[in-house]
């Protein structure tokens, strides 16, 4: 840890309890986590271990039952819905397992979508979208609809959408889960190159092969962090 690499995400004692039909389910129990700017972290664990719940809390899609979450130096519990939406829009880029592109928007419009919610002028949006699409090698498909693209290409567009807003962190939820190995490798390579270019990435995966691409792997089991692995040569 150095002063040039401050903490971007800090979780302290985060718990998440779901109440259904008077049954308490502890999805997360006392998670402590510190992710610094420029880090590439993977969160690994078997199905149902709580990693997606953790990701949704990190992405401000959900709120912890207890504990503290500080994003970019700012505590985020107690924020209003519009404030959370604003932070999601500006600080976080999402990459989903099944891409989640909107079917009746073109590639360009899909990538542009988060920028429109930011109220960004059209000319700036155009620059950003074009840059993001070029970065993932999809500039030539800007006018296509998602249905005209392969799965790998759709995921690249989803990555471009996450990148376009220059977020503080990219949250990727099983980004290769719906891809064949060749396309999966390509997407992982893309994330790797983004990391090399300075992006902070938090990736949830249950595939240890892909988890190893990250500098640091946090293993979650039954809602707890059970192990952390740091790849050799990482800055952490």
């Amino acid at each position: 840890m150095t002063t040039e690499n401050p903490s971007l995400i800090k979780l302290e004692g985060v718990t998440k309890v779901f109440l259904t039909d008077e049954v308490e389910t502890h999805a997360l129990s006392g998670i402590h986590m510190d992710i610094r700017k420029g880090e590439y972290v993977s969160i690994a664990g078997p199905s149902g271990c709580g990693k997606s719940t953790l990701l949704s809390i990190l992405g401000l899609l959900d709120t912890p039952t207890d504990g503290t979450y500080i994003l970019n130096g700012r505590p985020v519990q107690g924020l209003t819905l519009p404030e959370r939406a604003r932070i999601r829009n500006r600080e976080i880029g999402f990459i989903f397992q099944s891409f989640n592109l909107i079917g009746d928007l073109t590639v360009y419009e899909n990538v542009e979508l988060p920028l429109t919610y930011r109220g960004m002028p059209a000319s700036e949006r155009k620059t950003r979208v074009t840059e993001a699409l070029e970065k993932v090698g999809m500039g030539h498909r800007a006018k296509h609809l998602p249905s005209q693209l392969s799965g790998g290409q759709q995921q690249r567009v989803a990555v471009a959408r996450a990148l376009a807003g220059s977020p503080a962190v990219l949250l990727a939820d099983e980004p290769t889960g719906n891809l064949d190995s060749k396309n999966g490798d390509a997407v992982m390579e893309l994330l790797h190159s983004l990391h090399r270019a300075g992006s902070t990435i938090v990736m949830v995966t249950h595939d240890t092969r892909f988890a190893r691409h990250a500098e640091r792997t946090i293993h979650v089991f039954d809602g707890r962090v059970v192990e952390e692995q740091v790849e050799a040569g990482s800055a952490h």
Binding site: G59, L81, P82, R88, R90, F94, N100, L113, Y117
Partner: peptide, 9 residues
């Protein structure tokens, strides 16, 4: 998804 990407109500 739109809300996840920052759309407000």
């Amino acid at each position: 998804l739109r809300m996840a990407l920052g759309a407000v109500p």
